[in-house]
Amino acid sequence: MLVLLDRDGVINEDRADFVKSPDELVFIPGALEAIATLNSRGHKVVIVTNQSCIGRGLITLETLDNIHGKLKSALKAKGGRLDDILIAPDAPWAATENRKPGAGMILEALTRFREQPRNTVLVGDSKRDLQAACIAGCHRILVQTGKGRATQSEGLDRALLPVSIARDLTEAVTFIGEGRFTP
């Protein structure tokens, strides 16, 4: 199975002022171990993340590479790895189809890993994550970390349903392992 993960709010703490340096990347407890569990079960794991901080001129691609280097190193120390990281650097006012809620990054991952939407699940914390996965036809899990609780309390559009709700990435991985995400 292909498992697509949003980054901010799912793997690391979401910041209103963006993650602008490796020091600002603070992992949600259990998230790295959850990714290592997915790896140990043979799943492909890909991050699909909007990074408008690049389009806004707050950081460079080189800085983002350093931030992701910290993520990869910390993950390796826990016995895990990422199969890819796809980013949408677009500012909101210059959005392309890659920027969620567009499905561009998801469709790219499906093509790159030769996977079907029915064999793919996206784990995210925002409505735009769910919208992108819905457009691509993938399974959807909303975590309550990051913006997840607020997203859930605002209510989900019927068009986005069904959506499984997990406390965090650890519980989402349990759902994936047990096949307890909605079709």
Rank of each mutant, 00 (worst) to 15 (best):
I47F: 00
V46R: 05
V48P: 00
H68V: 04
L61N: 13
L61C: 14
L38P: 02
S52G: 13
T37K: 10
T37L: 14
V46N: 04
V46Y: 10
S40F: 14
I67N: 01
Q51Y: 03
V45L: 08
N66I: 14
T37C: 13
R56I: 03
Q51R: 03
L32K: 05
T63W: 05
G30K: 07
I59F: 05
D65R: 08
G55T: 00
L64F: 07
E62D: 05
V45K: 12
G30F: 04
K44S: 14
L58D: 07
S40R: 13
N50G: 05
L38Q: 07
G55F: 01
T37Q: 15
A36V: 08
E33H: 14
H68R: 01
P29R: 09
I67V: 11
A36D: 07
I35Y: 02
N39V: 07
T60M: 00
I59R: 00
A31V: 03
Q51M: 01
A36Y: 11
S52D: 03
G42A: 12
V46S: 05
A31N: 10
D65H: 09
I67T: 03
A34V: 13
C53W: 03
V48Y: 06
N50K: 06
G30T: 05
I47D: 01
I54D: 08
Q51F: 02
L61H: 14
A34K: 06
I35Q: 02
G55L: 06
V45N: 10
T49H: 02
N50H: 11
H43D: 08
A34N: 06
G30M: 03
T63Y: 09
P29M: 09
L64N: 01
L38N: 00
A36H: 11
I59P: 00
I47H: 05
T63D: 08
S52Q: 13
R56P: 09
S40D: 15
T37H: 14
L38H: 04
S52Y: 09
T60C: 00
A34C: 14
P29F: 08
G57W: 12
L38A: 00
H68C: 09
S52H: 10
R56S: 13
G55S: 10
S52I: 07
D65G: 09
L64S: 13
S52W: 05
I59S: 06
S52V: 02
L38D: 04
N50P: 03
N66P: 08
I59A: 04
R56K: 12
G30D: 07
A34Y: 15
L32T: 02
V48F: 05
V45C: 05
V46A: 08
V46D: 01
T37V: 13
I59L: 03
G42H: 12
G57T: 07
E62A: 07
P29Y: 11
T49Y: 01
K44W: 15
L64A: 09
A31L: 07
A31F: 09
G57K: 12
G42D: 11
L64Q: 06
A36N: 10
T63L: 09
L58T: 10
I35W: 00
I54Q: 01
G30E: 11
I54P: 01
I47Y: 06
L64R: 09
V46E: 04
T60P: 00
N50I: 00
R41K: 15
T49C: 10
K44T: 13
G55M: 06
E62H: 11
V48Q: 00
